[in-house]
Structures are given as structure tokens and as C-alpha cells.
Nucleic acid binder design. Structure first.
Lengths: 163, 163
DNA sequence: AAATACTTGACCAAATTACTAGGTTATAAG
DNA sequence: CTTATAACCTAGTAATTTGGTCAAGTATTT
């Protein structure tokens, strides 16, 4: 079972994309600032997300990434699968050859668990996350922090020009 | 989220214990042979299981481990918790300080997932696993292999004595 | 006393993760 | 047409985790 920062980052970044979809293509450096994920790492993750056709890219200035389809058709399980190979809880990868080519004692338990997790995460779309109150409030906080930082940056630049 | 071979081994070993409870204390070397888990590794796992009062040990010849309470009062979630710290899916360990001391965008999603997994694994007792047909059949296979190996070993020893 | 079996802790190799560095394209804006 | 921007690509690497080994105990029964 793999669910580490990698999968979490991917879902967070995709959610950020969904939340700001109205701004046109979103650059990774924007996501990097808002979600505090290293830019180079994001690039690697988005390479996989693009290969799995979850996002499409626009190159050049003003470019970035956008969701490849509506947010209600992208599910958390797909995102994790894209960057993380699988959310399979068995050791044998579901093959059933865990002990001398035959199934091990707990094989079916882990199959059941995998099924359970997969069903849960397959039922959650980006759209449903965007609609959540708690997500909205965190997102508003982040946007506020972002524009505040931009403001400060602008002020610093003005001061420099005056000198 | 940590669910690796470690947790799987622990559950498998505990299930082996439950399956052979009628034989009295079970030595780790028995479990090691049947489940193909390294003895030294089992020792580490059982040290933690004992600290969490899931098993009790009997020392000396004929000793081994037994479940510290009936199999219907031991749940998979407890076993994994014992060896694996937690089955928490959040990055912050549930603290909610994932981003600059505040919650990150996907915090609540991972909380929900943790809850989901925990509920599922908390509902599965060792007794319910023992009762499963598929588990029984794997266990019978393992016991057959074990006694076959013992037979062969005995034969080899007899041959040696005749020489 | 000898054999058996649990206990502890140090140690280690391989894999994985999370991240950095340093490029090269493609393209829109100036 | 130049330049800045941002995607894209390829390596490398530090830290962590995993899954284990080894050695030296301690306790208990026969």
C-alpha cells in the first residue's frame, strides 16, 4: 500500500488546479507557491499526470496546466494511481503468488481492504472536493496570503525604482 | 499511510497464532517455518505485540506465544497499530498543522480516508478471519506441508542412525 | 547443568521518496 | 526578432524506511 506525500501532493495540486480553473492555464510555479511544493517535484508529478491524460499543458508565457476534462469526471483514485502505480494493499500486487506461488494466509484480507479503499477514493471527484466548505475556506485563506505576498512584492519593486 | 510488509507480517503471524491456539503456546520458529517470515524479524514484531498486550509469552522449552485474549476480541487494526505506529493517512499525523501551522488543502480528505480504513480494519477480528473458508483452506495446506517436511526430516535422521 | 526460547540492541543493505540542479525546447509578449 | 516565460527532460542525491542479520544477553524448564 503506497500512500505517501507523493500521492498527497498530486491530489493537492490537482485540487488547486480545479479551484483556479477559471483563471485559464495555471503555472506550476503558482501551485508551488500556494501549496508549498517544490517546483521541480511538481514538474515530475505533472509529467505523470499528463501521461495519464488527467491534465493538458500550454507552453510558453502565460501557459501552464489545465484539467483535461471537467472536475466531476476526475477522481482521487485516478490521481493517486497516476503518480503512485497502485493503491493495492496486497504484497503480491493482487497476483496471489505470495507464498511459494500460492496465496498467503492473509491474501484475501488485503484484497478486501484494497477494494474498500479503491471504492472510497473512486467515489470522490475533484468537483465534490471543490464544493466542500472546509476546502473552500482553506483555499480562500491561501488566495488571500498569495495576493498579500504579491502586494508586498510590488511595493518592494516600487521602492527600488524610486532609488 | 503505512501499510507495508511489516503490518501484513504481523497480522499473518497473529492469525497463525489464532489458528493453532489449541496446540498451546506457539514458538516463533514454528510460525517462521509456516509463514516464511524470518525468525529475527518475527522477534522484533512480537516484542511490539507483547508491549501492546496482544500476546503473552511463555519462556523455556515448550514455550512460545499465545493470544492475550480471545480471538474475537483482537482486531486487525490493533495489530497494525501495534507494529506500525498508525494507519493515519494524513501527513501531519492528524494534527492539522500541515501548512504553516494551519491545515492544508486536502487535510480533511485524508482524515476521512483514515477514518474509513480504520473502521474497516477495526471491524475485522482474528476470530472472523479464522472462520473464513479461504483462510481455512490456506491454513490446511500450510499444515499439510509442515507435517510433510517433518516426516522427511524424521526419515533423514533415521537413515543417518542406520549408517 | 544443559537445552530451549524469549529479549534487546546495534547494525546494515536495498529501495524508495522527496527534492535539487541543470539543462532543452516551445511560444507569447514586447 | 529578441526575450522572457514556462513546460519538459535527465541526472543525481540526501534522507528515510524497510526488511532484515548478528550477537549477546536473560529466563525457564527438563
Amino acid at each position: 500500500m503506497r500512500l505517501t506525500t507523493k500521492g498527497r501532493y498530486a491530489v493537492t495540486a490537482m485540487l488547486d488546479l480545479a479551484l483556479h480553473a477559471d483563471r485559464g492555464p495555471i503555472s506550476l510555479s503558482d501551485i508551488s507557491k500556494r501549496q508549498e511544493i517544490s517546483l521541480s517535484y511538481l514538474e515530475q508529478l505533472f509529467s505523470k499526470l499528463r501521461q495519464n491524460e488527467l491534465v493538458s499543458s500550454v507552453r510558453g508565457p502565460g501557459g501552464g496546466y489545465r484539467l483535461s476534462r471537467p472536475a466531476d469526471q476526475i477522481f482521487v483514485a485516478q490521481i493517486i494511481d497516476a503518480v503512485n502505480e497502485s493503491i493495492d494493499a496486497t504484497n503480491c500486487g493482487g497476483a496471489g503468488n505470495c507464498q511459494k506461488g500460492q496465496v498467503c494466509l492473509t491474501h484475501y484480507l488485503w484484497c478486501d481492504l484494497s477494494e474498500q479503499i479503491h471504492q472510497f477514493l473512486s467515489g470522490i471527484s475533484l468537483a465534490s472536493l471543490v464544493a466542500r466548505k472546509d476546502v473552500k475556506s482553506v483555499s480562500e485563506r491561501q488566495d488571500a496570503e498569495e495576493s498579500q505576498e504579491n502586494e508586498e512584492k510590488k511595493n518592494r519593486e516600487q521602492k527600488l525604482q524610486l532609488m
